[in-house]
Design a protein around this nucleic acid. Structure first.
Lengths: 186, 186
DNA sequence: AAATATAAAAAACAAACTGTTCATTACAAA
DNA sequence: TTTGTAATGAACAGTTTGTTTTTTATATTT
């Protein structure tokens, strides 16, 4: 890819992230983005057809990154299948989030966060789904779909709660709480 | 209140709800609202200072209604404290949602639903909080806050899942699933 | 190094939306 | 009936959006 393109893309992403930590997505204008990124109006539209497309591209970037590194880290054993394993996939995820690469926490907590959340949920869902497949016992009184949704949904809600609480709890303790409400139902 | 005011308010709300079931909040313009409601531009701004204020007013309307009727219906016994009670507060809520008064389901499922969801969560939170107070046993290994958030959060996620699934499951069965994942941790 | 291709820029544009003002008309309540 | 208040229509300046066109700057290829 042309070095010039990379430069402008990077500038636009950076400006966009900075703006997102200031104000909600819907209040951000293309004008502000190109002002802050210091690129021409034409240039912006050559890269992204709209503000929404930019948001989507950003989401794909960030979440594919965080989830690739997470699911690669603990692939072999299932969801909380072994108590002796100290760090679950979830703990890894929380630790990753706490590091706050690329301001991902700011994005998840901003007021127009629905799009981020849907990406978060989607990625979590497939993660939980694949983890549950390795689980031996299965409940036959609850649909698998419901269970998957419950687990990933609860996790999302927990993260939001965590953020609202300014990350006061440690990832490890949070993971322990999460185990306490998830393990009994498996 | 002046009959004229009631009339325009009603027209605006109605137009707004109709538009929300067509497209997301951010794509709706004031222009469209006043066109559909057939009121003057000046009139709209005399009632609501912005599109956002209208949304807020609508949320307050709808949720205060649904939650007042719900929490009034089952005030005396706690959250799933008695297995012999067939219909929990949650079952009531689900049934209420299924009736879909004022298109509340459309609002919860539209793509810009963050504001609706925050109202939903908020109301649920205080409901769960008050229900847990009547619960005798308490876990001392998990903070009460976490538990409340987990329960109401899971419920919200379940409803979203339900909506995505086009309300295929009955409220009663959904309530059973929810019991199965919540009761074990109480 | 020169030639070619491609990205960025600046300016200008119509179209749409916003939020406000003001004068006029219609309606409700006393 | 009179008086107050709500609704209306038109016009407005200011933004924002997405596009076009021309020119300039920078990579890539030979």
């Amino acid at each position: 890819m042309d070095r010039r393109q990379q430069k402008t893309q990077k500038a636009i992403f950076k400006a966009f992230i900075a703006l997102l930590s200031e104000k909600s997505f819907s209040r951000i204008t293309v004008q502000e983005i190109i002002d802050k990124a210091d690129v021409g109006r034409t240039t912006f539209y050559a890269h992204f057809i709209s503000k929404e497309a930019l948001l989507k591209a950003l989401c794909e970037e960030l979440f594919s990154h965080i989830f690739r590194s997470t699911s690669a880290s603990v692939p072999e054993h299932g969801l909380y299948s072994d108590d002796s394993v100290p760090d679950s996939v979830f703990c890894h995820l929380l630790q990753h989030l706490k590091k706050n690469d690329n301001n991902i926490l700011a994005l998840l907590s901003c007021s127009d966060n629905e799009i981020f959340l849907s990406y978060f949920r989607e990625n979590l869902n497939s993660l939980v789904h694949s983890l549950l497949k390795t689980q031996i016992e299965r409940r036959n009184d609850i649909p698998q779909d419901f269970l998957v949704n419950h687990i990933s949904g609860s996790f999302v809600e927990m993260v939001l709660w965590w953020i609202r609480d300014n990350l006061r709890e440690s990832p490890e303790r949070l993971d322990r709480y999460f185990r306490a409400v998830i393990e009994p139902i498996l």
